[in-house]
Design a binder for these strands. Structure first.
Lengths: 246, 246
DNA sequence: CGGGCTTTTGAGCCAAATCAAAAATAGTGG
DNA sequence: CCACTATTTTTGATTTGGCTCAAAAGCCCG
């Protein structure tokens, strides 16, 4: 079950068996958390690192008018708060969207791990830089794509990310969240999301029923959504940095 | 002129005089770059670290339909591509918005700097984590705020960031970009941006003329925009991490 | 003075929001 | 297993914030 973390990190750096064991040992503490519960709240000083093993969590902020904006989906294999301690206080909250299994690594353990194993340092930083890349793409999504493409793009990303940890081998994947959650993610209304989903299904692009998302033809959906997976950086970077002249 | 970098980094970590000197020495190579020129393009493997000394640059992506989404403003003191080498290839481009003075640090120099000086390592990572925090807030801005508040919020952020490097001591600051650039930033049309700007001026919240932005009453604008500067993390985090129980 | 940007204004339109209510589903406890 | 709720999904009618298209006005600069 820690497997999923190793798969994720494995995309960022080639980990030795010892390094994998070290990670596995670190995630000794695992808890099942029900849906709609916060792991950390805005303003908190994070005391431990969380990682999702099963289920979906998210980063989000609440607005004065009661609105919510979800800024990231955290799927199995994702770390929630790897490096936030450098910032001191959380500037957003993290909560579960579904019943989840969450690993909790004491910050001291995580730091020791990182200090002793340069390849893990790299993998951890890779993971947070990928988070940043995803955030940038979401901004493009919100700023410049109409509702149908916006949702389609998100579905493409989800498939790629779940595939990367072995959870979407065919075009079928679990997505046990509500349409309202999706609306808060893509910056639309639940009502409009509902209509767009019906349209996507009629267009044969994606169908989502009973918490299961089906993508018949990945390439067709990607073409529609103008999806390019490069920003997920799932292909490992060349290990040796290029020497350069100024 | 390197001053501005030290001010920025100083918000992330308390740097010694030696560390400041080391940074200053590293930015020996400075160039003036005209407006609308790329420093790096999507797909490139970054060879050096850039930092803005004077002027405005931005991160952006182009869309198939010719649209552009700006995903970050890079103002004096900001590093453009500190850690992207971990990701291998750029997933977005970085270009100037105005005539700018850009520092160029060979990647090897930057890495050596970071390796030898733990406090600089921290400061550099702090800077990229703040970038991520800004990105999250921009996502909230795009997803949940109407045009007027969206632009007002961006102005508040700009003021706070420029103030942090000594470039907006009263409510007056340079903003020598076009309304079209602003539109590409906030995900609106240039036409609509124009109308919103007129409205903000009439409301006495902010006026922007000849590349100079004036904010009469910071608190009033912040209230209107629901701006809270916490996500900029300009107050230094407590240096000693809290020891915790699992 | 003339050509290219920007900024500004106007009129009409459309994607997505709002408001409201019904239908379907999922829980919950007896 | 069934009533009883609460949540989620779906549909319909209407409104609106922001877009599109088009052209005028202002600016900058050689």
């Amino acid at each position: 079950m820690v497997e999923v973390l190793l798969r994720k990190l494995g995309h960022g750096a080639r980990l030795s068996a010892e390094e994998e064991d070290a990670v596995a040992a670190a995630v000794a503490h695992v808890r099942d958390i029900p849906a709609h519960q916060d792991l950390i709240q805005e303003g908190d000083t994070p005391a431990a690192v969380h990682a999702v093993l099963v289920g979906f969590a998210c980063r989000y902020k609440m607005l004065p008018d009661g609105g919510r904006q979800i800024m990231a989906w955290l799927v199995p294999g994702d770390f929630c708060d790897l490096h936030v301690s450098i910032l001191g206080k959380m500037d957003h909250s993290i909560g579960t969207l579904t019943d989840s299994r969450i690993a909790r690594i004491p910050r001291t353990t995580a730091e020791a791990l990182s200090l002793q194993r340069p390849m893990l340092t790299r993998a951890f930083w890779w993971a947070t830089l990928v988070d940043e890349g995803v955030l940038r793409e979401w901004l493009v999504n919100m700023g410049r794509r109409p509702a149908s493409k916006r949702i389609a793009h998100l579905f493409c990303e989800l498939q790629a990310r779940l595939h990367a940890v072995g959870l979407a081998d065919d075009g079928v994947m679990d997505l046990p969240i509500t349409q309202a959650d999706l609306a808060d993610t893509v910056g639309l209304t639940a009502v409009h999301v509902n209509r767009v989903l019906q349209w996507l299904k009629e267009a044969g692009l994606a169908s989502w029923k009973n918490g299961v998302l089906k993508i018949e033809d990945t390439e067709r959906l990607r073409a529609f959504a103008e999806f390019d997976a490069n920003y997920l950086h799932l292909d490992r970077a060349p290990p040796a940095p290029v020497r350069e002249t100024i």
